[in-house]
Design a protein around this nucleic acid. Structure first.
Length: 263
DNA sequence: ATGTCATCGCGTCGATGA
């Protein structure tokens, strides 16, 4: 079965592209980020008509995540738990679904990790604290020893090979040592990162900026990731990036990334 | 590193976020 992530950069602007891609790619489970919509404004019934169960965690104007699944949801959780001392978090960036695949469980968490720029603002510490929360949550989930996939827009460029021009990203929140180190710490809990489990190739990107002809110059970055628990990694059969959607009319700046999971 | 894009607000552009 096909499990995918896509930062669509607004469901209102991307409505037709999302429907077209669902019809074309036929994914079984999809995590969408940046729906930029409240739950009531999400085109739920239209996507249900394509055979999906739909769960959203939206907010007005910004952020917002959704889970679409051809399998029924056994459980849905919205929002990443806080740690002791954390302030309330109003931002909709996390949704988790539990499913039954064959006779076993599968957990899928869709995340939209904070961008963190500019680094001299409160946004950067918010990013790092969000990553600490994600690590704590993931650590607890791993104790279940179940197939778990955490996928979405991580807003982290893991290594220099994951961007066209590393020097241009020096100092950026996506490439700061603190961000990369927190991402590595998460992986080192025991996750396999699907794209790098499949290939060591360079110029493998998932995002191209709208500005300065980034797409035409292939000036991209790899920031949309899929992390698999050991139980899920055992079933990883293939990985792919739907790069062609970046040249569609009115594209998102991100493209869908997906894996084939042996059911 | 900015040649862009999406959204909101009550306004037909500016602020904000990425």
């Amino acid at each position: 079965m096909k499990i995918a992530t896509w930062n669509i950069n607004g469901i209102k602007a991307r409505h037709d592209n999302v429907i077209a891609w669902l019809r074309e790619a036929q994914p079984d489970i999809v995590c969408l980020q940046e729906i930029k919509s409240v739950d009531e404004a999400f085109p739920r019934s239209e996507i249900e008509a394509l055979g999906y169960n739909v769960e959203t965690h939206g907010q007005k104007g910004f952020n917002g995540v959704a889970l679409l699944s051809k399998l029924p949801f056994d459980e849905v959780n919205r929002g990443l738990p806080l740690l002791d001392g954390d302030a309330e978090d109003e931002q909709a960036r996390f949704i988790e679904g539990a499913f039954t695949v064959g006779d076993g469980p599968l957990r899928v968490a869709g995340i939209y990790l904070p961008n963190g720029n500019p680094v001299d603002s409160a946004k950067f510490p918010y990013k790092l604290s969000w990553m600490r929360r994600l690590e704590a949550w993931a650590r607890a989930r791993l104790e279940l020893e179940e197939p778990l996939i955490i996928l979405g827009d991580y807003n982290v460029i893991p290594e220099p090979v994951d961007c066209h021009d590393p020097r241009a990203w020096e100092g950026d929140a996506l490439f700061r040592p603190e961000s990369r180190s927190a991402f590595r710490a998460l992986c080192h809990l025991g996750f396999s990162e699907a794209v790098r489990a499949a290939t060591a190739a360079s110029e493998v990107y998932t995002f191209w900026d709208f500005q300065a002809g980034a797409w035409q110059k292939n000036n991209g970055i790899r920031i949309d990731h899929m992390l698999l628990s050991p139980e899920a990694a055992d079933r990883l059969a293939a990985v792919s990036i739907d790069k062609h959607t970046r040249s569609w009319e009115k594209p998102s700046d991100h493209v869908p990334v997906w894996l084939d999971y042996a059911a």
